[in-house]
Design a protein around this nucleic acid. Structure first.
Lengths: 208, 208
DNA sequence: ATTATATATAGACTATAGTCTAAGACTGCG
DNA sequence: CGCAGTCTTAGACTATAGTCTATATATAAT
């Protein structure tokens, strides 16, 4: 072949499948696109598709993982001097905006479905590493700064805070089109953080 | 026919399909049972099955709806004199216990999957009417008793409180077998209620 | 260079959820 | 009683996700 070894050929095939699939999903919706259609339009085959992706969901899951880059970048530009609570609120705001306007509802729906199916691989625990690390970092920082008490468990609080995300995102799909993601996520996490600060916040330092 | 009119015959067929399916699901798990197997073991047919149930999920969804009876009965036996917060905590405890030990994880998983698929029918808004009415009732009562401020919106708070349930239940499935449903649900709703009481609780009356 | 091995891909094949049509059986009405 | 209309059911059929096997080609070993 002109331009390279087998490995890079395979990578090209994967990219072609990936991009074609995303186009089709965007155009017609995930459920309205068949794997046969994807491989045909990619001049490829089922064998190639399932060699590169674990399932039809695999396409969207791979796209979803790009969110890690977003998180890293987004959190990097939050001013240092904001309080813990403000930082978490900003994280939610940025995240929900990204999910709604960049990744889209159809993608998130399939990601959430696959989270319920692949009980083996523990999807969210593997795939949202970056998010969890960031949230744990914010909590650790808040403890260091004396905003949170030393007996706050960063690991456990990370699960609880991100559970607010998952609960809100689930409802986004389960309830019709009247659901205002930004508004609902803000109301929910605000109340939750109030509770969290009430219990673990250091008196006199409670998030401004 | 010997024992009745057409309508009751149909009802019998439905019952037979329903019970056979539940048995098979229990024995082998939802994903390991095919509709063909259900109809065969029920001495029935695909036509009958899909005449009575909207989909394979329909079986578990119908079973799930029995939870309404549980809610009504369970809430009826909570002592009147408990505080709002205590009542909500008891509701969570009873609910999670019922879901884990009576309905089971496999059933709940399929219910949550179908909540993500049938965007049209607004599954949770239709099917959990009883739960929502109960929670709204508790909030209304708390307002009447002066535990919650008059500007608390029962409708909106009901969504938020039940979102705590959905978030916890989603995580129950998404995270492996190490997830302790009772413990996690309690920690989550306690913090959330703290926040809620902080904002909407009437000073001096904050849930004992 | 020759042979052996591993990898990527093509596409036939399987499993299965759900649709569709026809036929049988009950019901109500003249 | 008999006909028309309606509901229920049987089961063939369709659509489609995912598996499996054979083949071809690149890479590694001698």
């Amino acid at each position: 072949m002109v331009n390279g070894n087998r490995q890079s050929q395979a990578e090209q095939t994967k990219q072609r499948l990936f991009e074609t699939a995303l186009e089709l999903f965007k155009e017609k919706g995930f459920d309205q696109v068949s794997v046969d259609e994807i491989v045909q339009k990619s001049n490829s085959s089922k064998g190639a598709f399932y060699g590169h992706f674990k399932s039809k969901y695999g396409i969207f899951i791979e796209k979803f993982k790009e969110i890690d880059h977003f998180y890293e970048e987004y959190v990097g530009q939050i001013p240092e001097d904001r309080s813990f609570k403000e930082k978490v609120l900003l994280l939610f705001e940025g995240q929900m905006n990204y999910l709604e306007h960049v990744l889209g509802k159809d993608l998130m729906r399939t990601v959430y479905i696959s989270g319920l199916n692949e009980t083996d691989e523990n999807f969210f625990s593997n795939s949202e590493r970056s998010l969890y690390r960031i949230v744990r970092g914010l909590i650790g920082e808040a403890i260091e700064r004396g905003e949170l008490r030393r007996d706050a468990d960063p690991r456990q609080l990370t699960w609880l805070i991100t559970r607010c995300m998952r609960g809100t995102l689930y409802d986004w799909h389960a309830f019709g089109d009247t659901f205002d993601l930004q508004k609902e996520s803000k109301e929910f996490i605000e109340l939750f953080l109030d509770g969290l600060m009430g219990r673990y916040g250091v008196a006199g330092q409670r998030g401004k």
